[in-house]
Design a protein around this nucleic acid. Structure first.
Length: 455
RNA sequence: GGUCGGGUGGCCGAGAGGCGAGGCUCAGGACUGCAAAUCCUGCUACACGGGUUCAAAUCCCGUCCCGACCUCCA
C-alpha cells in the first residue's frame, strides 16, 4: 500500500508516483515580507506530512520549496511589490527584509518539527532560470512582449488552461472585483505578466533581453520546479487559494515549456479559520506561532490540532482547541516516559493504512487514543506504536521532557518543599507551592513524591 | 452573479444508509492533609421542511445559514 491523495485536477484520489521510489515534490513557499501566520503554517505542516508519509512507505523524497523575495505584488491596483512595500515601512533594505522574514520562516518550521526541504531557492537568485524559461515561451509563441514592454503569457495559446481550477477562459471576466489600472499592454485580459518592465522602479530589478525589470510572481515556481526536479513533479502542494490563478498559471508555463504534463498530482490544503473567519489582517484574527508560545503552549500542540482535522476541510481554530491539544500532548509526553525509554518502533497497520488513505491523520490519532487506553497492550508496545506514529505526526514524543531546564532557584524551593512535606508542615508546603506557581512552575504531589511542570 | 465546501451535544470535531467516534469543558464520585494529575460515573447530538428505504446524521429535492474561490492570499 502506498500514499494516495486527492488530486485537484482530476478530482480523484490517486496514488503518488506509482512504481517510483524517488519522488519529486514541490511546495509553494512563503513570500517573505511578514511573519507566517498559523494558517500559512497549516499548509507547510501538510507538506511535511506528505514528505514524512512518503518516507514511511520507503520512498525517498526530493522536496523543493521556493522563497518569494521579489515579484509578488501587494495588489493589482498599486502595483507595489510586497517586499518593497514592507522595506519602506520598516525603513530597511528590501533584501534585508526578505532575509529577516526568511529566517523567521525557518525558525517556525523548526518549532513545528517540519523537516527541511532539499532546497529553498530564492526568486531573486533564480532570475536567470526564469529568463531562460521566458525566452523559451516566447520562442514557442506562448508568450509575447506587450506594448508596455512587459512580457505576457498568452492564455489563448494554451488550450487546457483551467484544468485545475475548472475556470474557463471565456467566463473569466475582466475587472470582476475591481478595475485594472495597470498592465495595459496585454492582448487579452486573462494574460499575465512573466516579466515586468522596471518603469520607475529602481530596487530589485535585473537586466533582461526585454529591458530592465523583474519577474512576475507565477514564473518562479515553474522555473524552479522544472529545473531542480527534472521537468517533472510527482506531487505539488499548496494552499487552496493558490489553485487559481497561481497554480493554473504555473501549470500553463511549465507544460508549455516542457510540452508535457509537468505535475502529476496537485494537492491543496484547505484554509484554517480562526474563530469562524479566514485569518486576515482586516478581520484582525491573525495568529502567529509566537502568539501560541507566548501563552506558554508548546508549538507542537498546534501541529496536533491541525492533524486532528482533515487537510481537505476548512478548520476552525480556537484558543480552546489549541489548549485542548496542549493538554493531550502533555499527557502523552508523561505517558511516554511512564512507558519506558525503549527506542523500538513497532508498525501499526491501522495507522499506516489511515495515513496512506489520503493522509487521514484524524483516524491515526484516534487509533493512538485507543491504544493509550488499551488495558491488554503492554507499555512497551504502546510506546513502540506511539514512536511509529510519531515518525509522521512529529509531535516530539521521542524526546524526554527536559528536566534540566528547571531554573536553579526553583530547584531550591522544590527541595525545601520536600523537606516541609516530610515534616507534614502543610502551611509551608502550600506557601512554597504558591511561590513556585508565581515563578511559572506547577507542582503536584503524587505517591512517588513531587512532580513539576511549566505552567 | 458564477463555482466549490460545509452546518453534528456547552465547545472543537470524526463518521457518510442499520452497531452511541474521540477530545476539551462541565457535574458527581474515588484518591489526596489540601490542590493538581489520574481513574470511575454522568451529559444520547447530527440546520429546517419534504421524499426514498424495512432502516437516513449519512441518499434525493427544496429552504435557511456559514465559509472559500472567481486575476493580493497558505
Amino acid at each position: 500500500m502506498r500514499l494516495s491523495m486527492y488530486d485537484t485536477a482530476s478530482r480523484q484520489i490517486q496514488e503518488i508516483a506509482p512504481g517510483k521510489d524517488a519522488i519529486a515534490m514541490y511546495c509553494c513557499g512563503p513570500t517573505v515580507y511578514r511573519d507566517a501566520h498559523v494558517g500559512n503554517l497549516r499548509t507547510f505542516i501538510l507538506s511535511d506530512l506528505i514528505q514524512r508519509t512518503l518516507k514511511l512507505q520507503g520512498s525517498t523524497v526530493k522536496l523543493i520549496q521556493n522563497i518569494t523575495d521579489v515579484g509578488h505584488m501587494a495588489d493589482d491596483v498599486t502595483v507595489e511589490d510586497k517586499v518593497l512595500q514592507q522595506a519602506k515601512k520598516e525603513n530597511i533594505d528590501p533584501f534585508d527584509i526578505a532575509r529577516k522574514y526568511e529566517a523567521k520562516f525557518h525558525h517556525d518550521l523548526a518549532l513545528l518539527n517540519i523537516e527541511p526541504a532539499a532546497a529553498y531557492p530564492r526568486a531573486s537568485e533564480t532570475i536567470n532560470l526564469m529568463q531562460k524559461m521566458i525566452s523559451t515561451l516566447i520562442e514557442k509563441s506562448f508568450a509575447y512582449v506587450g506594448s508596455d514592454s512587459n512580457v505576457y503569457f498568452s492564455v489563448k495559446s494554451f488550450a487546457s488552461y483551467g484544468a485545475i481550477s475548472g475556470n474557463r477562459i471565456d467566463s473569466l471576466q475582466p475587472g470582476h472585483r475591481y478595475e485594472y489600472t495597470d498592465e495595459g499592454g496585454k492582448l487579452f485580459h486573462a494574460d499575465w505578466a512573466l516579466w515586468k518592465s522596471a518603469g520607475e522602479r529602481t530596487e530589485m530589478i535585473w537586466d533582461s533581453p526585454w529591458g530592465p525589470g523583474f519577474p512576475g510572481w507565477h514564473i518562479e515556481c515553474s522555473a524552479m520546479s522544472m529545473d531542480l526536479l527534472g521537468n517533472h513533479v510527482d506531487v505539488h502542494v499548496g494552499g487552496i487559494d493558490l489553485r487559481f490563478p497561481h497554480h493554473e498559471n504555473e501549470r500553463a508555463q511549465s507544460n508549455a515549456t516542457t510540452q508535457s504534463e509537468s505535475v502529476a498530482l496537485w494537492v491543496h490544503g484547505e484554509h484554517l479559520l480562526f474563530e469562524g473567519r479566514k485569518m486576515s489582517k482586516s478581520a484582525g484574527n491573525v495568529i502567529l506561532l509566537s502568539d501560541i508560545t507566548a501563552r506558554g503552549i508548546d508549538p507542537l500542540a498546534l501541529r496536533l490540532v491541525v492533524q486532528e482535522n482533515r487537510y481537505r476541510s476548512q478548520m476552525d481554530l480556537t484558543w480552546d482547541s489549541i489548549e485542548s491539544a496542549s493538554i493531550t500532548l502533555k499527557r502523552w509526553h508523561r505517558k511516554m516516559e511512564l512507558w519506558g525509554s525503549s527506542l523500538i518502533v513497532k508498525k501499526d497497520e491501522e495507522i499506516f493504512a489511515s495515513l496512506m488513505n489520503d493522509l487521514d491523520t484524524p483516524r491515526a490519532i484516534q487509533r493512538l487514543r485507543t491504544i493509550e487506553r488499551d488495558v491488554a497492550m503492554s507499555d512497551e508496545m504502546k510506546r513502540a506504536v506511539f514512536l511509529y506514529a510519531n515518525q509522521v505526526l512529529a509531535l516530539g514524543l521521542e524526546v524526554a521532557k527536559q528536566l534540566s531546564l528547571l531554573p536553579e532557584n526553583c530547584a531550591v524551593l522544590l527541595a525545601q518543599r520536600e523537606i516541609a512535606r516530610s515534616n507534614k508542615d502543610w502551611a509551608r508546603s502550600d506557601a512554597l507551592r504558591d511561590e513556585l506557581a508565581e515563578l511559572g512552575i506547577l507542582v503536584s504531589d503524587t505517591s512517588q513524591g513531587q512532580e513539576w511542570d511549566f505552567l
